[in-house]
Nucleic acid binder design. Structure first.
Lengths: 344, 344
DNA sequence: TTGTACGCGTTATCAT
DNA sequence: ATGATAACGCGTACAA
């Protein structure tokens, strides 16, 4: 069994309550005793048992995170960086769960509730709104990351995917492209839908008719090589530009084009999304839409802590943060290099 | 306050102990009562309080992970995938900490000990062996990931970096290269040292003298662009091959070579390490050394669980797992394409 | 088969 | 300023 506060108290020759006060730096304890207790604690390598403290009614000093994690490793890793930085700053630790599917998500919720986390950061909606409603009724603070639910008012932090796809599509249209292939991920996923909306919005603005055959969707984004190959061969006339779902998806897209002996950007222009670290290093350097992913992790955690510390009786006004993306133009989408490239 | 087992017991019209037995599927409770209790639990949305259970002396059902996280996001993300998969399988959740420096590492240990984690997976040695010794004396199971300490017997799971660099260097030497630039990360870091050993070992085997000027080290691996540029300009004669620290570092290396108008692999051959997802998509496709990163996460967690479940009185024989790397030859290091490339 | 009572480690309350 | 005690929620030894 581990060292308890009783052991410390005994070694210091005081009662447990005095030891507790001394260790928690309460003012109502003599300096002499406090020093003795702290010395005893150090000598015994004492560490509070947070389970006992949590049981006593205090907080668990733990946040829960539920990630969707569709293999977008760089993406969720960046979010986690932001979450960790803020949590550490508040003296909190973080339990991370991957919700590959609905069942895993339920298990994650179960574990996190059993561990009595003080709040949740949620990037997965495999079971729809149900879990969120339950959290709301049980008064457990949570913030959605990159997800949003219609007709359900709650806090969320998002990237404006619609705007991102809109910007990229406009950029391609401005270059004169009229047949632009729009590549999406899982169709039921809200990020896919928003990207599609942005794509359509731009087309409409330029008076270009929408063609369903120019939209392709694949669940496993990174494995879309074959799909792109097949599509580019099938469509007549072939698209002259491709709006890749994200930078990771752009990799197989570029490879497929090389396979087809199509030059980028001369024959086909390509844009990515998320502006991951490798985008500027590709050949040609990948035009992408920069999203504040790390920032999203930070901000959502800050809001969560605000909410956790919010007095129960005061009404809380939900916060919605939407990060506006920025188009980063590189070589993969323009034939003439821009004079001063928006290189990061 | 949340629902407790008392509430469930009251609703089901039984005592708390009966409720406890029913919920834990103990055999000594009538089916009729069990059903009633479980119905009550479901109705109330009851979730055990794991703090209470942990306090009672059981386990905390939580693992701690301490990551070094030198921005090698894809790398640590892959490790975490393996850890999560195994933990979930055992019904455990995982608290992840980033130990950017010695102070953060100490804070991480403190938190994890206070949370009474059942075991630790450690990928950070910012405070040397001290913390490990403490864990050993306190009988807290842990497994090192990708770290090893001289004269300290403990469980670890590693990638054989020395062998990886050896293989890559031999490969370059076989292609006829004699001046091979060896790029490393932080010099005090054991992975850097092991890579250097593998590099030297290969040189010696081929009877090529070691030249200190051909070894460059930079803390921030991803920002080595300038260093490579400067080095390639300065050295006479210029190196004809570069052993990049890892695939992420290979990105700026390749970019620097393009800047210098040096062709890859004709003028300079390049190899990476870790074989990340983007390696085959680069132009030219990057030769790399494949490490079982995800596997390392899985295996270390499996060993940790073995150790956690190991009877206290039986002696435990420490396990050392070393994954042997595999060279994946692609276009960046050979002028004539191999007939059947070891493409994954 | 079911119920009663205690203890896990901590802290808040009350008493001294 | 310090000490005794109860309570948090759960599981279990013991009693019935």
């Amino acid at each position: 069994m581990a060292i308890t506060i009783h052991d410390v108290a005994r070694l210091a020759g005081v009662s447990t309550s005095t030891a507790s006060r001394a260790l928690n730096r309460r003012p109502d304890v003599s300096k002499e005793v406090r020093a003795r207790v702290q010395a005893a604690a150090k000598e015994l390598n004492y560490a509070v048992n947070l389970h006992a403290r949590a049981l006593k009614g205090a907080t668990s000093k733990t946040l829960g995170v539920i990630l969707y994690n569709s293999r977008l490793l760089s993406f969720s890793a960046a979010i986690m960086e932001g979450i960790h930085d803020i949590s550490l700053h508040h003296g909190y630790s973080v339990i991370v769960c991957n919700a590959h599917d609905a069942a895993a998500e339920r298990q994650a919720y179960q574990m996190l509730l059993e561990k009595r986390v003080d709040g949740l950061l949620i990037n997965s909606l495999n079971n729809g709104v149900e879990p969120l409603k339950r959290l709301a009724t049980e008064n457990i603070p949570f913030v959605l990351i990159n997800r949003r639910v219609d007709n359900f008012d709650c806090d969320y932090v998002m990237v404006n995917y619609q705007r991102g796809s809109y910007l990229a599509t406009c950029h391609l249209l401005e270059q004169g492209h009229r047949r632009i292939l729009c590549q999406l991920g899982a169709p039921q996923h809200s990020p896919s839908q928003e990207r599609l909306r942005g794509y359509c919005e731009a087309l409409e603005e330029f008076g270009v008719p929408f063609e369903p055959e120019l939209v392709i969707a694949s669940g496993q984004v990174i494995e879309c090589y074959d799909l792109v190959l097949e599509t580019m061969r099938r469509l007549k006339p072939a698209p002259t530009a491709i709006l890749a779902y994200n930078d990771e998806a752009a990799l197989p897209v570029l490879k497929a084009l090389r396979e087809l002996k199509l030059r980028v950007p001369e024959d086909v222009a390509v844009t990515g999304q998320n502006d991951l670290f490798f985008a500027p290093f590709l050949v040609p350097a990948l035009t992408s839409v920069a999203q504040s992913v790390y920032e999203m992790g930070r901000r959502s955690t800050e809001i969560l802590f605000e909410k956790i510390r919010w007095p129960q009786d005061t009404p809380w006004a939900t916060q919605q943060v939407i990060y506006e993306p920025k188009l980063v133009v590189r070589d993969s989408s323009v034939m003439v290099l821009p004079s001063v490239a928006a290189e990061r």
